[in-house]
Measured scan of single mutants.
Amino acid sequence: MAAGGDHGSPDSYRSPLASRYASPEMCFVFSDRYKFRTWRQLWLWLAEAEQTLGLPITDEQIQEMKSNLENIDFKMAAEEEKRLRHDVMAHVHTFGHCCPKAAGIIHLGATSCYVGDNTDLIILRNALDLLLPKLARVISRLADFAKERASLPTLGFTHFQPAQLTTVGKRCCLWIQDLCMDLQNLKRVRDDLRFRGVKGTTGTQASFLQLFEGDDHKVEQLDKMVTEKAGFKRAFIITGQTYTRKVDIEVLSVLASLGASVHKICTDIRLLANLKEMEEPFEKQQIGSSAMPYKRNPMRSERCCSLARHLMTLVMDPLQTASVQWFERTLDDSANRRICLAEAFLTADTILNTLQNISEGLVVYPKVIERRIRQELPFMATENIIMAMVKAGGSRQDCHEKIRVLSQQAASVVKQEGGDNDLIERIQVDAYFSPIHSQLDHLLDPSSFTGRASQQVQRFLEEEVYPLLKPYESVMKVKAELCL
């Protein structure tokens, strides 16, 4: 049975990233139509530049190519590739079939990587351009969430054990800070992308030097003109047959890092959902379990974690691919890159769409948070109580021993009897502590235990987050809708 299948058929496997999760716009960027249309555009740009620099290419040939950029006979191309065992030459023939007058000058002087690699770089750039505003929107939604809850005390956790208090907004800023680093890295790697350009079979530009009869300047002009037509500021000066596969490492490393950030955020949300302090959106008709109707599973956060793990592992592909590119190139890269580049971007696209949807509907339960604080705060307040007693004339050592005994009794009630923490009640009825009984409410005010959390939130948002989001103001209103 021949390899390949009808990918629109229910009898043929289709990647869930495309069929179930990723956005239509990201799927289109990695589609065959987008790819092969870009090949034709690159052939047109090459012909236009070659004509401008004096090669015998007519206006009629150029116009014929322009008129057929979208006229792609995919069936013919597939048949040609089956016959020739070469995808680029299959599309040269297919393009030439609908451009008979231009057929002889299509791909003039070029090698397969002229269309293959340059198209990949265009796709990487455009895919990054799709991700950047999506990530900015996630940051914006979380920034709104953090600002609104900047002063809401909550129990902090280290080692997932109760620690000092923080605020809900401050905790959210930990998430935002990681995503801001990801946004900066995505922008950097996007701006650092260079075009492969017009380089020939081993990167020496020998074929173009021959076409222009040894004119170095025209060869350099050709490279520059096509690079500018493709919208790049610069091209690699040095290439082998391909652009260095280190570029793929750079791009997928940034995406993998984004995956790590999203995994951490969504894990926190899942843990908070278990504590009943916070939940992701839950639709009115949504079913959490087929057997347990009360369940409210954090399905979206779980999906993000599941896909983020996949995204983090994909960076190993370009690392290994770059390491086995012998001399000017081997074909070890080809099949692998067809999979890992598309999957990385479709996965990143999915987790950003999902995280935006989550961040637009996060639900906080202040009463649950308050109750958990009441359970733990008495123990945390013991040092403040000791200091207040010393100020009232008591002995630190005597007070410490009193607190120690009462704390152990209260802990026994919590752990052995399943009761509430009654340390404060014990202190309130103990005559030894009568000098500070009137101060206990103040000493137990949760806001006095959150330090500068709310001020940190305000400063972080104003100095770091809002300036970073400013270039994306025009796209901030787009909502994230999930079908599944």
Rank of each mutant, 00 (worst) to 15 (best):
A2I: 13
G5I: 08
D6A: 14
H7G: 09
Y13P: 14
S23H: 08
M26D: 00
M26I: 14
D32F: 07
D32V: 08
R37Q: 15
R40D: 01
L44W: 06
E48R: 08
A49T: 05
Q51R: 11
T52S: 09
G54Y: 04
I57W: 04
I62T: 05
I62P: 00
E64Q: 14
K66N: 15
E70G: 08
N71D: 09
I72F: 05
F74A: 02
M76T: 15
A78S: 09
H86Y: 00
M89F: 10
M89E: 03
G96C: 06
A102G: 06
A110S: 06
A110R: 01
C113G: 13
D117E: 06
N118W: 07
T119S: 07
D120G: 04
L121V: 12
I122V: 11
R125D: 10
L131C: 06
L132V: 11
I139E: 07
I139N: 15
L142Q: 01
L142V: 09
K147H: 13
E148G: 09
A150Q: 11
S151E: 07
L155R: 02
P162T: 03
P162C: 10
T167L: 02
C173I: 02
C173L: 05
L174Y: 03
I176M: 12
M181C: 12
Q184D: 09
L186H: 11
R188Q: 11
V189G: 14
G200W: 01
T202E: 09
A206S: 01
L211M: 10
L211Y: 08
G214M: 04
H217P: 06
K218D: 01
Q221K: 10
Q221M: 15
M225Y: 14
T227P: 05
K229L: 06
A230Y: 01
G231P: 01
F236A: 12
T239Y: 00
G240T: 10
R245C: 02
V247D: 14
V247T: 14
E250G: 12
L258K: 05
A260R: 02
D268E: 12
D268N: 13
D268P: 01
R270Y: 03
E277Q: 06
E280P: 05
S289E: 03
A291R: 02
Y294R: 01
K295N: 05
C304R: 03
L307G: 10
T313C: 10
L314G: 13
D317C: 08
Q325E: 05
N336G: 09
L346M: 13
I351N: 00
I351C: 06
N353Y: 06
T354R: 02
T354M: 10
L355S: 02
E360D: 11
G361H: 15
L362S: 08
V364T: 02
Y365Q: 04
P366S: 05
V368M: 00
I373E: 00
Q375F: 15
F379R: 04
M380R: 02
M387Q: 05
M387C: 06
A388T: 08
H400P: 00
E401R: 14
K402L: 10
R404H: 06
R404S: 09
L406P: 02
S412M: 06
S412P: 05
S412T: 15
E417W: 11
G419F: 03
N421I: 12
I424R: 12
F433S: 04
F433Y: 12
R452P: 02
R452S: 13
Q455I: 07
V457Y: 03
Q458I: 14
R459T: 12
F460G: 04
E463K: 14
E464T: 14
M476G: 15
V478W: 14
V478M: 15
